[in-house]
Design a protein around this nucleic acid. Structure first.
Lengths: 207, 207
DNA sequence: CTTAACTTGTGAATGAATTCACAAAGACCC
DNA sequence: GGGTCTTTGTGAATTCATTCACAAGTTAAG
């Protein structure tokens, strides 16, 4: 299959959110134009994005809201439950554990890991916090699909190495560090400092 | 000035981080090639990124580490202190307040805002939590440069409207919602659900 | 001083993503 | 059924971002 741009996947994700909203409001069909208005893009963009995966609409009418939602979930791989572990049980880890979006979308958190004995053995929102030392053993017993990395920058590379070594192929990194992983591992970065600096740049360079 | 791509600004931000690391290790000069290796990009990319703003290197030698760092800070607008408010004192807001990256980079948090009377009047890491009702009054007294929005998706648009109305021109949005703002307001989105779905897509579409 | 080894800065070439623009197809009305 | 109105799907055109490739500047060594 042709390689799809990250930006396209991100938009599909946004379209799905809008569709769920429309579905909740009882709407049956939706046009690319309306979807575009919601997403701050253009109708041509919406149609092009969808066209990479098939043709889901009816000319003159638009898209069936529930049908397109189903198709997008398929495309995005949301038909199944993904197992997640969270590495780092600090403030960010704690915020992630209680984030509603995870379960709503079929992401199931198995456990959180930390090296702080004050945290190990406790639970956060019902999720056990385990000793990072037993990461390898646990993963062997029940392999997670995705690891969320929420540790200080200086530990991030060492931990991602362990995560990769243990066979996990997808990482969501919250640490402010540029991590290096083999090409068969997908990594996405969320970097607040970088976003803030983007705003700083924008504020400094305007009239 | 020519419009600079977001992707370029993000990379500049990354280069600055590497430079600070090199500086700490006492290195005096650095080549575009080394910078590229660190950032997972190419030396041509590094040089092109920098070339939009001037020519900072010495042929045959590379870039002076401290000098380039200074230049990047200037470019990114990090020479001054930016005032920030955090809207939403839930788990994410709490994680943000204690995030080291803020002060390290000259971002100064004035206050957090919430509508939960159990939180109002308390402090988090020394930052006062105030009633969201007094947002407008406070902002009038001491105008922040940037608002960080960390509230549930369903309140996000209403709150960003208030933020915009009060004259703030830069917003970092953590709410899983596509927000609409006037074109003179810069908004950056951090959306965990979207990143996770990107990973889900990647996992579903590989050999 | 000359040569060899590096490394920048940048037009030109390539590649990728977005937008245009329009034929084709369905809906709706009379 | 004919005419009008909508809206999709998609090649072609365009715009934007990255990579190439090399002249020119700098260092270092003999």
């Amino acid at each position: 299959m042709k390689r799809i741009a990250d930006s396209t996947v991100r938009r599909l994700s946004a379209y799905l959110r809008f569709l769920e909203d429309f579905e909740g409001r009882g709407l049956k069909t939706i046009s690319s134009d309306e979807l575009a208005r919601r997403g701050g893009t253009t109708s041509a963009q919406v149609r092009k994005d969808l066209s990479f995966f098939g043709s889901f609409g009816k000319r003159g009418l638009g898209y069936s809201v529930p049908e397109l939602a189903v198709r997008l979930r398929e495309i995005l791989g949301l038909g199944r439950k993904w197992k997640i572990i969270i590495v780092g049980a600090g403030k960010i880890g704690a915020a992630l554990v209680q984030y509603r979006g995870f379960k709503q979308r079929g992401f199931h958190i198995l456990a959180a890991y930390d090296n702080d004995s004050g945290k190990i053995g406790r639970t956060m929102e019902g999720i056990p916090v385990r000793d990072i030392a037993q990461l390898e053993r646990d993963v062997h017993k029940e392999p997670p699909d995705i690891a969320v990395l929420a540790v200080p920058g200086e530990y991030a590379q060492v931990l991602v190495n362990r995560i990769v070594a243990v066979g996990i192929k997808a990482v969501l990194n919250f640490a402010p560090a540029q991590l290096h992983v083999p090409h068969d591992v997908t990594i996405r970065n969320v970097n607040m400092a970088m976003e803030l600096e983007g705003l700083s740049y924008a504020l400094s360079n305007r009239g």
